[in-house]
């Protein structure tokens, strides 16, 4: 023993060095990502990545900052394609977009529950889903809205359904070299309903359970987070609710069905039983909200 005490230095400064690149085009970024393979990390808002590097959970050799790539920072809307949110648009920029607030309010509201104002000035929705946490706040509205993820990959730009995007805890369908360029929400006639996030503390906390319960053009869509390895849709319950009038009895039956579709675990935020109780509350409240909206 030489008597030295191991102490982690504060800040990312204690970690191994890496190369930093800020490519100007998707092609250039992809080339770098392929060159470094698994040892490259895409840097967007950095609110997940920099924390992971700081905590010693990620050790990239190269960090590829995509914020210098043109065309990734815009929100566009048209009646045919719907709403497209560029990969580098921050959550606070989303919260200030008039079309998003008017037509896709549930998504803006979910984004607004992420972290703090400081975090939302950096964090992006692309980063939120690419990080693939089961509790990611923007995941359940995107699932409920049947969003499409735009990916620049081997075959140029393609779209993948959000339902195929999440594979497991922290695992997406993205391959080495793939870059999410944006997220597209199809245009709908009407969207009613709410996003709910249950947390231990009101501000700057991760969801114990979160849920989006909405009605799109008359059909109920239910998505839940932090109740399975990935955020999920409650398809059986949705099928059960199809064409039914939302009475209190129907709602109670739906709640029991939802419990059969989830597989929560116990962790530092809550026990399995507690999560199930909260799921009941969020679904009941969400469905009652739909009655009120009619």
């Amino acid at each position: 023993m030489n008597g030295t005490v191991k102490k982690r230095k504060a800040g990312v400064d204690g970690v191994k060095n890496f190369e930093y690149y800020k490519p100007k085009s998707l092609e250039e970024a992809r080339e770098l990502l392929l060159k470094y393979g698994e040892e490259a990390s895409i840097l967007n808002g950095g609110t997940d990545l920099i924390v992971r590097i700081h905590d010693g959970l990620s050790h990239p050799k190269a960090v590829i900052d995509i914020k210098g790539i043109e065309g990734l920072s815009e929100i566009t809307y048209d009646e045919v394609d719907g709403l497209t949110i560029g990969a580098c648009v921050t959550l606070n920029q989303m919260g200030e977009n008039p079309v998003l607030l008017e037509k896709f309010r549930v998504l803006a509201e979910a984004g607004h529950t992420v972290g703090s104002c400081q975090v939302r000035n950096r964090a992006t929705m692309a980063g939120n889903i690419a990080n693939a946490s089961p509790l990611a706040d923007t995941a359940t509205p995107l699932l409920a809205l049947d969003a499409m993820v735009k990916v620049f990959g081997e075959e140029g730009e393609t779209e993948v359904s959000i339902h195929d995007f999440f594979v497991w805890v922290r695992k997406t369908c993205l391959q080495v070299g793939d870059i999410v360029t944006g997220i597209r929400i199809p245009n709908y006639g009407s969207i009613e309903g709410i996003y709910q996030k249950h947390t231990r503390r009101n501000e700057v906390d991760l969801a114990t359970v979160c849920a989006t319960v909405i009605k799109i053009d008359g059909e109920v869509h239910i998505a839940l987070g932090s109740v399975a390895p990935t955020p999920i849709r409650a398809r059986k319950t949705e099928a059960f609710l199809k064409g039914k009038v939302l009475t209190e009895e129907v709602i109670e039956e739906a709640i029991e069905m939802v419990l059969g579709e989830i597989a929560p675990i116990g962790d530092i935020r809550a026990s399995k039983d507690y999560r199930e109780e909260i799921v009941k509350v969020l679904i009941r409240r969400g469905l009652r909200e739909l009655i009120a909206a009619m």
Binding site: T47, V51, H54, Q118, R122
Partner: peptide
Amino acid sequence: GECGACTVLVNNKPMNACLIL
């Protein structure tokens, strides 16, 4: 990113300087 003690304004927006390279 949890405490805000490092908050600075970047292009007039508050951000956590500990989460920016």
